[in-house]
Nucleic acid binder design. Sequence first.
DNA 1: CTCATAAGTCAACAGGGGTTTACATGGAGG
DNA 2: CCTCCATGTAAACCCCTGTTGACTTATGAG
Lengths: 185, 185
Amino acid sequence: MRDAIATQERLLLAARRRFADQGFELTTVREIADDAGVNVALISRYFGGKEDLFARAVAIDLQLPDLSAVPQEQIGARLVEHFFRRWEGEPADDLLRVLVRTAATHPAAAARVADIFDSQVRPLVAMLAGDGEAAQRASLVATQVLGLAYCRYVLSLKSNELTRASTHRMIGETIQRYLFAPLAA
Amino acid sequence: MRDAIATQERLLLAARRRFADQGFELTTVREIADDAGVNVALISRYFGGKEDLFARAVAIDLQLPDLSAVPQEQIGARLVEHFFRRWEGEPADDLLRVLVRTAATHPAAAARVADIFDSQVRPLVAMLAGDGEAAQRASLVATQVLGLAYCRYVLSLKSNELTRASTHRMIGETIQRYLFAPLAA
DNA sequence: CTCATAAGTCAACAGGGGTTTACATGGAGG
DNA sequence: CCTCCATGTAAACCCCTGTTGACTTATGAG
């Protein structure tokens, strides 16, 4: 019954959900504790405080797929597919939504996004498209992928719900261009 | 010296700056009042409260350019150019930044973005590309433009600062595709 | 069974936030 | 010059939030 580790995990889960839905500032530690079914004071006890709980909640790995066996001309489509699965997977995965939403106002989350970009996205792009232009190509990819996430999962602009297949295709082609098309000034 | 209208405008200006930099929740009415050089109580007196001041601060017009005389093949580039000017204009125009940042957590701002999308972006796209697929094409454009804004002006990911010319070009081509390329499922 | 300790609870505190109320002040019309 | 009202000020109010410290309860080892 009394399991400290399980309690911490319930708190982390509830925290991610709340932060993903409401952002950092609007979420109160009492809400999180109630969702988790535990006492508020345990947040301070186990994590140090709200900030520390948040830091733990956004320590996220993109889990980028292995693309070594994918033909080059399919990579864009494959990446988009991967992200849609990540965003809409069952059970609903708040891991990325919490980042995109909170990064808008919380410096730690913004720093985490920049960090993920540097340590996960850019190396992958460098491997795919060569070192020289990797940073810029990765930036372009980031604008499109984060923009998609922002519109769909933060703002909930549902205007294109019906035609996800062609959204897939159009955005996959964009990623493909950002990765491999010439960048001529 | 005592000019109620001028005071309200100073408050609105200060509010937009603060909201654009910090978002809604982290901004205090005392900060805004101090920036404007007026007393805090005047915010409640003139606007009703912080929420109402915010609503006034985000009542924004995109001022989309007239594209009737622009050759079709240049429209994407022209739109990107327009947005860069809007974002980086002198004096710094917080009008759009405040929306993209605050929409992440504040329902009123998110609603305003959706409203701008419906009343300004979609009609323009419909005019350019025909009514049938306007909604979906406009959504695609929104993901790319908002993503660019989010990365550059909210997160301040500066990785591509050096090569703005080709960023312009690459993203312009994307917009062009989203507007005119076939959407085949 | 006992009891030491980890796990969890409770209530209070301190700070900051938006808002309101009562008061002061300046400037135009009589 | 005086008066009245819009403009601006100062201080208090009240609620909410994160945090803390003292207290209680369960659990497992001896």
